[in-house]
């Protein structure tokens, strides 16, 4: 599915502002930290898809960059689980 670039831009901007607002108002917990990274990864996927127009047929790059998202997601989530959290 081809994402329109303006829609992609709207999604990225809205997600950036909402994840920031959420984080500022709700304080710092594990769930919020994971949510912030999950939103970041959705934004990146939106850039790859809606801005770069990198689609499944563009192998191997589309696959490698999707793999990158998975690996980076695991690194970020792992990093958050490794931290001590209150409550």
């Amino acid at each position: 599915m081809k994402l329109s670039s303006t829609l992609a831009y709207g999604i990225i901007a809205a997600l950036s502002i909402s994840s920031f607002a959420l984080f500022e108002s709700q304080g710092h917990t594990l769930i919020l930290a994971l949510a912030v990274f999950a939103i970041a990864l959705v934004k990146i996927a939106t850039i790859l898809n809606g801005f770069m127009h990198l689609e499944w047929q563009h192998r191997p790059f589309a696959q490698v960059l999707t793999g990158w998202l998975v690996v980076v997601g695991a690194v970020l989530a792992g990093g958050m689980f490794a931290l001590p959290w209150n409550s």
Binding site: F20, H28, A33, V36, A40, L48, F51, L76, G79
Partner: peptide
Amino acid sequence: WHMVDLLWMVLFPMLYLAGGT
């Protein structure tokens, strides 16, 4: 240029937000 953009999408939450203050 999009790569510069998307790397920042991780750097920003990693350095400024998630992980707690």
